[in-house]
Design a protein around this nucleic acid. Structure first.
Lengths: 137, 137
DNA sequence: TTACAACATTTGTTGGTACAAAAATAGTAT
DNA sequence: ATACTATTTTTGTACCAACAAATGTTGTAA
């Protein structure tokens, strides 16, 4: 009956890094999910994404991407256009404000993530990646 | 820059088991957090817990244990008394309805957890436990 | 044209969660 | 007794999220 201990430890680890990240992002005025959406949009390198694509690529799945993106638009970090070829689709772009915010936030996030993993050896980094990959398939 | 991949995989694994568990618990009418509180109270084996203790032992930390317990009381799964020696404290007990619900729910949860971990070898079970323990300290 | 199915996004509703402030109680010093 | 401090729980506020229903759009077929 060791399974439970593993699941509990997984929940705790997740909670620890989640808390650290949202605490680190708080002064920047964005949540983890908003940060991830911004990174997805930046990853498009100028090409627009639609809501569907963003939703698929989000780490934390949630049903209402619309309202999450609304927050980013309110903050001027994202633009939204109706696609001309298919007006059912919404084109999303990251703004230059969004890009410069990411530039500010990236090193903060990197450091929090590095600290979180600092206690692991190189072998263990590979081990956990292998194990988590198995769990996610 | 492999750290990010690990963190993302951790988020995904957490999301996968969380979703599976809450889906499995849904027909029983309780959330994961409510389930965990019930288990904490059962673990007391008849001794009362107060809100503080429950809060400390909860896996998913949240500020608002009061309202979570309220839900359990509404469902008749938990009883609440004011402690006679120290009226600041609230004594919480799991009811017999709560105990029998847990009896129903336990095998469901066990199976979901076992399925989630099924792809790992025995060695990997030990590995991930060791790694997660490191991360949580 | 009209009806209809498929698709993409939005909105309504309900319940979950964080944070801070408030309320209630206990213990202690004066 | 009174005031003060610490402890424990509750409440207020505001935001986040899941789910289902609704809206708007396109393409297709009768």
């Amino acid at each position: 009956m060791n399974n439970k201990a593993i699941i509990v430890a997984l929940f705790k680890a997740n909670g620890k890094i989640t808390e650290a990240l949202s605490h680190g992002l708080k002064p920047m005025g964005i949540s983890i999910q908003q940060f991830n959406v911004l990174r997805i949009l930046r990853g498009q390198k100028g090409n627009p994404s639609n809501l569907n694509t963003v939703h698929e690529r989000m780490i934390h799945k949630m049903s209402n991407t619309t309202r999450l993106v609304d927050k980013l638009i309110d903050k001027g970090l994202v633009n939204r256009n109706v696609c001309k070829e298919n007006r059912r689709k919404i084109e999303l772009f990251i703004t230059t404000e969004g890009l410069s915010l990411l530039k500010l936030v990236d090193p903060i996030v990197d450091q929090i993530e590095a600290e979180f993993l600092a206690s692991l050896s190189n072998d263990q980094h590979e081990e956990i990646m292998e194990i988590l990959t198995k769990l996610n398939n």
